[in-house]
Write a protein that binds this DNA or RNA. Sequence first.
DNA 1: TATAATACCCGC
DNA 2: GCGGGTATTATA
Length: 216
Amino acid sequence: MSGTYTTLTPLQPLPPISTHHHHHHQRLSGNVSGSFTLMRDERTLPAMNNIYSPYHKDMSGMGQSLSPLGNIHNAQPTLHNYGAHGHDKMHLNGMHGCHPQSHGPVLASNRDRPPSSSGAPGSGGSGQLEEINTKEVAQRITAELKRYSIPQAIFAQRVLCRSQGTLSDLLRNPKPWSKLKSGRETFRRMWKWLQEPEFQRMSALRLAGKTRYLLF
DNA sequence: TATAATACCCGC
DNA sequence: GCGGGTATTATA
């Protein structure tokens, strides 16, 4: 044991995401699901602390980010700076591999209920496990990226191992899961990232793989 | 200027 | 044809 408990259980009932298409500020509609048992979660965390943006003071928007307990000013001591690369304070579990993603035969980890479980698009009962509604994932990713002020380029490269243009396209024009072939993997990563706790997300953002490219 | 969206192109 | 990268352009 190296003291690093890598086994992180992304437990979370997954809040009922609203498919609201607000063409500008996509805010969460009071989805205070009661899962504040954990201190940090998705929306339970006020996205006030910018990750790496030197400026960009976010002030409007997060109206519901207030913690039900009242501890709004829970300024996370987390130094969000995935742009940095020299600070290796904590050993992050190397699980942010990019390419060497062992192509498992469809990881059927039912840790969470996949989105769009209300109706199989294929209806034919295709062999895809964990159906992912690409449209929904795209919207959520977009929202989170904005919420945390994470540029597409950063997220795309560090989490998805893709380019900014690709991510933008996927976010804007997400193809239905049924029509996807190998592009599913990319969406899976997005979906996976959404399920991870905040701190783990940041870890993924600062990492670049391993000794892949020591640039940045 | 920085970030996002689009266009065009290439590899599998 | 699909998926993705780079370059370009558009926008804040």
